[in-house]
Amino acid sequence: MALELIKDKWTNNINEVMLGADKPIKVGGENTLPFLFQEGDMPNRPVVAMEVWDMEPPDWPAHLKAALGDAVKSPVEWAKKAISEFGADLIVLRLQSANPETGNASADKVAETLKSVLAAIDVPLIVIGCGDDQKDNDIMPKCCQAAKGKNCLFGLATEDNYKTLTVSCMADGHSIIAESPIDINIAKQVNILITDMGFDAKRIVMHPTTASLGYGMEYVYSIMERARLAALNGDKMLAMPFILFVGQEVWRVKEAKEEEPGWGDVAKRGHLWEMTTAINMLQAGADILVMRHPQAFKDTKKAIERLMKK
């Protein structure tokens, strides 16, 4: 007797979020677990964003910087190269220079950089603060304003710090990233807090926190899977697309960064580590992947093409 696969039927779908203005793209919208085309549809393929910093990253490993070349010295050149050479679907601009420990650049200064990047690209832009709550609340209102009309995605809103960013995004027509510390209860809570301020739930993208291969990736996977199952069963406060900062996590671990006898060529190991993490996150339900190494980037995009074949 032929084996008959059990198919699940879901009542709801993940929200579809439109990003960008010149060449807008849609993310989310799926009504099935990832790539189960027998059960449902993924109207929008997962997309890959390249992470660009507004300053040369001080502690990235040499083999990662070498793969990116001189472009890392200029955010505009870096973003342009990411699109023309590596085929980035979106750009992530991290405003690291504003962090009090890495330059403490002013709100005006980072808003200028943001404008020049926006002027140089036509793909949607994701903007991430410097990681210092107080400073981010100082720079983000100006940055949101500077990007008005460009329908960007701004982050990161957390349970303890979401009001300033929510108000700014609402005022200037941007979408928002809601972050939680690998905790499904807090993920839902942040979404509720943001929507309680009058923000449209359909303009939220969730960051469930990312973990690298070998560093708790499975836990992130299980949280994402549980959120997806709840969302597909009708929980509107978990029905947001996922963004995963794969590069940021992978390029912190020694397996990607360091020479080690018996571990093989680090230059190759690094991008393979990033790609492997990325592909696992796709299977967990990632809608936007944020990555750093051009080779990992290209390989992941190829994998998406293969996974999307019905």
Partner: peptide, 12 residues
């Protein structure tokens, strides 16, 4: 799924 505002969540 639990969250602190689960009563609000139900009514969203």
């Amino acid at each position: 799924i639990y969250c602190d505002s689960f009563l609000t969540a139900y009514r969203k």
